[in-house]
């Protein structure tokens, strides 16, 4: 990962609407991207140039574009029409984002397109977040990693983040992943946690 004066940046040429740059690098804002927040907290999995990434919940494609600056190829899955239109624009400006309009709950729809990947990054903010990740682990090579951005408020408004995180960990372990670490994303994102897993 590339840091300049304590700020995370990514080495992209194509800019996404009016963002700031630092010495020719794109600034990767931890307040706008949970993945950047995770790196700012000193955690996360370093992105490597040879990495192939499956990104679930690509939204407008901002974080996707930063990931794409670091890795070989990003398969970006998003199901909502409005953000997907933005994602398409971002993908058209780069040659290593494969945009796929599909529901991450139905991986069989994009199985024909997505090859084996080294990392699955999931940020879908749905109640069944853990199940969605598990239904996608078929894309992961052995030794591959997963990063799940857990939004506690999407799972249950009544329980605390740590309760929900513990429950999600149990679900993921039962699904065959080993959980390396669970990191709370406060102060950048209250009520969010990142669960980092490995496929043994």
């Amino acid at each position: 990962m590339i840091w300049i004066d304590g700020q995370l940046v990514s080495p992209g040429k194509e800019l996404v609407h009016g963002e700031r740059t630092l010495q020719g690098f794109r600034l990767w804002d931890p307040r706008r991207s949970k993945l950047s927040a995770l790196y700012h907290l000193g955690q996360g999995i370093d992105l490597e140039p040879q990495h192939r990434v499956l990104y679930l919940g690509a939204a407008n494609g901002t974080t996707v574009s930063h990931v794409a600056d670091y890795v070989e190829v990003v398969y970006a899955v998003e199901s909502a029409p409005r953000p997907f239109q933005d994602l398409l624009v971002v993908a058209e400006g780069r040659d290593n984002i494969i945009p796929i309009m599909a529901d991450a709950r139905k991986p069989y729809l994009y199985r024909p397109l997505v090859e084996e990947v080294d990392l699955i990054y999931q940020d879908v903010a749905q109640r069944d977040q853990a199940a969605i990740l598990l239904s996608n682990t078929g894309f992961l090579n052995s030794g591959g990693a997963t990063i799940l951005m857990l939004k506690a408020r999407s799972v249950d408004v009544r329980r605390t983040l740590s309760e929900i995180a513990a429950e999600t960990e149990t679900l993921l372990k039962a699904g065959g992943l080993s959980i390396e670490k669970t990191i709370s994303l406060s102060p950048y994102y209250p009520d969010h946690a990142a669960l980092i897993g490995l496929l043994p």
């Binding site: 190829v73 029409p81 997907f84 239109q85 398409l88 993908a91 058209e92 040659d95 290593n96 984002i97 494969i98 945009p99 796929i100 309009m101 599909a102 397109l113």
Partner: peptide, 19 residues
């Protein structure tokens, strides 16, 4: 990757229209 990308964009545009 280039051909895959064009195919995925085309496929997604179709899905977008349906949605």
């Amino acid at each position: 990757l280039e051909c895959l990308r064009r195919t995925a964009i085309s496929y997604s545009r179709e899905m977008l229209l349906v949605a």
